[in-house]
């Protein structure tokens, strides 16, 4: 289970509304490499893992991703609070506004709604950890791209924090993969699925 902490993992205090920035940042909520997909990916993959430490990595990173989803949602909320209809139209936020007003809804920057098709839970920890490392890199690239599109220090600061977390998570998943491979039977040189049918 989970308990709620009444705090963000890292502060978000955006003073100036910016609908254009909100339109791209929301992709890290409901987009293909976003925090919601990351969290569901790791928290789904962990059950069938035969190694407790690797299941721990998936549980703990999956939990941190929930905190990142909350930070992104808080950013979109603050970026869209107090916008005028003129600003909403001028900054291209009208296509979101018509469906969701300024409520927070998980979509990609393109407008595509969140889908579980963004991630896998393959039931093979070697396969899953490779996907997880790729996911962290894809999210890092997305944050790099966001940083090219925004110039408000209030936006840049929390986005840089989230970008750095992708790098640390990539490192931890890489170590989890090494620890998994260290346990494989010497007869399983080609690293067939250690979760199913290999014994």
């Amino acid at each position: 289970m989970w308990n709620y902490d009444r705090k963000l993992q890292y502060p978000v205090n955006i003073k100036k509304p910016d609908a254009r920035a909100a339109k791209v940042i929301i992709t890290q909520y409901g987009g293909p490499d976003g925090e919601l997909a990351a969290s569901l990916r790791y928290l789904s993959q962990r059950y069938s893992v035969p190694y407790r430490d690797v299941a721990g990595v998936l549980t703990d990173i999956g939990t941190e991703e929930l905190a990142h989803m909350e930070m992104i949602s808080a950013m979109v909320y603050q970026l869209t609070k107090g916008l005028s209809i003129e600003e909403i139209k001028r900054e291209g936020f009208d296509t979101y506004f018509v469906d969701h007003t300024t409520g927070i809804y998980p979509i990609a920057a393109s407008g595509a709604p969140f889908t579980a098709a963004y991630f896998q839970s393959k039931g093979d920890i070697i396969t899953d950890l490779h996907e997880d490392m790729a996911a962290e890199q894809k999210a890092r690239t997305t944050y790099d791209n966001i940083l090219m599109l925004v110039d408000d220090p209030d936006i840049i600061d929390p986005i840089r924090f989230l970008r750095q977390r992708e790098i640390v998570h990539f490192q931890r998943f890489g170590e989890a993969l090494e620890r998994t491979k260290d346990r494989l039977d010497c007869k399983n040189f080609y690293a067939f699925n250690p979760e199913f049918g290999s014994k």
């Binding site: 902490d5 993992q9 890292y10 502060p11 721990g56 703990d60 941190e64 998570h169 931890r172 989890a176």
Partner: peptide, 23 residues
């Protein structure tokens, strides 16, 4: 005080993830 809690809470999470792969 909330900033201090966020800072120290982050340190705890970072150490937690590190210990998962360096027990």
């Amino acid at each position: 005080l909330l900033r201090d809690i966020q800072t120290v809470g982050f340190v705890v999470v970072e150490a937690q993830l590190f210990l998962d792969t360096h027990p």
